[in-house]
Amino acid sequence: MDDQNLNSYEEIFTKKIIKTGRWTLLGAIPLCLLPALYLWFKYGAIPPVKTILTAWFMIASIYGVEYFATPISYFPILGMSGTYMSFLSGNIANVRVPCAVVAQDVIGVKGGTNEGELVATLGIAGSIITNLIVVTIAALAGNVLIPYFPPVVMKAFDYVLPAIFGALFSLFAVKYPKYGIFGMAISAFLVIVIGVLPTWLVVPLCSFTTIGYAIYSYRHRKLQDEH
């Protein structure tokens, strides 16, 4: 692609997405406070400020690092617009990442390209709509629908996550077997051998050491080709 097109992609997409992404995320903050404020004004139901601060401190001590560690870890997969969308809509590892990646695979575009970013954006948008529909149906009619799910189906739901992650892994392990083996070895080491590290540390460690290994082996191959 020539510079002309790159520049216009910047203009048409990147700059506008930053603007939209910023106001939708920051604008969502007052909106998500509405239920808490309503409980306060209508029913006087509000814990003492000190309790809220204590709870905030406690929850931030668990997730505080993830506020920046998760966006950074998933950024190479989601791209910029995917990050704006995923961190408003949530369910990142189990819904947004697989949907973005599968959309790219089906359309046949590469991650890290402009085409890849657009396809990931649309794949994530599609997944958000599905998610909103399912969650809304569950909220309105869940209790009525649940008897229609036989116990064996309920049990099978336990395996959705490992199955999705297994499929996602092999989709790419076929393309980059060496990185796949490296990723598995490093996560086995961190999860099974060491085992005490918190999630916010293990996820970026697995992702970034595998990236590091990929960069190293890519540069190494390039050097060898030059000789």
Binding site: S73, G116, Y176, Y179, S187, F208, T210, I215
Partner: peptide, 8 residues
């Protein structure tokens, strides 16, 4: 990108 997906 591929390595990030595989690591994660």
């Amino acid at each position: 990108c591929g390595a990030a997906i595989l690591g994660t």
